[in-house]
Design a protein around this nucleic acid. Sequence first.
DNA 1: TACGGGGTGAAAATGATTACCATGTGCTAC
DNA 2: GTAGCACATGGTAATCATTTTCACCCCGTA
Lengths: 167, 167
Amino acid sequence: MTRDLRPHPDTRPAASAPWRPTRQRTAVLNALHGRTGFTSAQELHEALEADGVTIGLTTVYRTLHALDRSGRVDVVRDRTGERLYRHRPTDGHRHYIVCRACGLSAAVEAEAVERWADEVAETMGFAEVEHTVELSGVCDPCRTEHRRTAAEPPPPRSGRGDRRADS
Amino acid sequence: MTRDLRPHPDTRPAASAPWRPTRQRTAVLNALHGRTGFTSAQELHEALEADGVTIGLTTVYRTLHALDRSGRVDVVRDRTGERLYRHRPTDGHRHYIVCRACGLSAAVEAEAVERWADEVAETMGFAEVEHTVELSGVCDPCRTEHRRTAAEPPPPRSGRGDRRADS
DNA sequence: TACGGGGTGAAAATGATTACCATGTGCTAC
DNA sequence: GTAGCACATGGTAATCATTTTCACCCCGTA
Ligand SMILES: [Mn+2]
Ligand SMILES: [Mn+2]
Ligand SMILES: [Zn+2]
Ligand SMILES: [Zn+2]
């Protein structure tokens, strides 16, 4: 039962390690670029493995976290609280509206909210204010289909938010 | 090993059961009224038991859900995704700004956001649009205390969001 | 070749929330 | 009142996304 008492691992996290483009990290990044909608860590992992990429779920989570911290992805939470990631197309953060039926997502203009948030922060005397703004609803196609089929709600058209509303 | 095959339980959910003011439900409601800030189901449960109220955690969750569905409480999610509830003071929904250090919460004016959300819904052609808007930051007292103590962050002043900024 | 900081990932731990389901209770029809 | 049933309750087990652990791998450098 003698515990392992070797030297002193001293495995400190390393405040900010240099970003090494490993096979796995590259794969995650590519996978994200290949999708237009939001994807969960687990879905991403499955997709990667399905594509023949060998990678641990842990690594997917870690990578997504890092990308989030460095602001290279946008994150939202679905109603169960699960985190969904999306590669951030342009610079600066964005807000989206997501269809609860098919997952379709589209970026929305939110300058008004940004200004409102700043104003509130000042008024209330709060610092380092962060905001969470998420919109969800039922997109037009889904609504139509819903009317047609008076029965079960239309099954997710594709994985999660693969289609786009832009056009 | 013969299973219980009595009549036919027919335990259907019951679309909308009448609200019976049971001992437990009353206790939960009271506990919520006694707090000004946001509280998690688990905290509420602990508090209740501490007050001598015998109630199951399951029931607390169920009651909170019901209150949420009927719009009698506001719900936010902290950064871990945990749901925090707060008795809704006035009618109509509200948005809050919460201090990440001490939990202090205060309602904020968000008409601008409401209008923005409606506008986006129409522009994007989405129906049944719901929105989540949450602000978090560091309140003035906490910021001050933080400057003073250059060490560990100020420990939560009290449970979770008990103090208020209104005044 | 030895050393050391990153990285990885299988496996186990967490922890909030939910599902089950046997048992209790408020109401109402008789 | 009392029976009967829908509604409620709560202990316990199950879910399930995310986090921790920690032994091991990779690779550039001394
Ligand atoms: Mn924003
Ligand atoms: Mn609102
Ligand atoms: Zn849709
Ligand atoms: Zn504070």
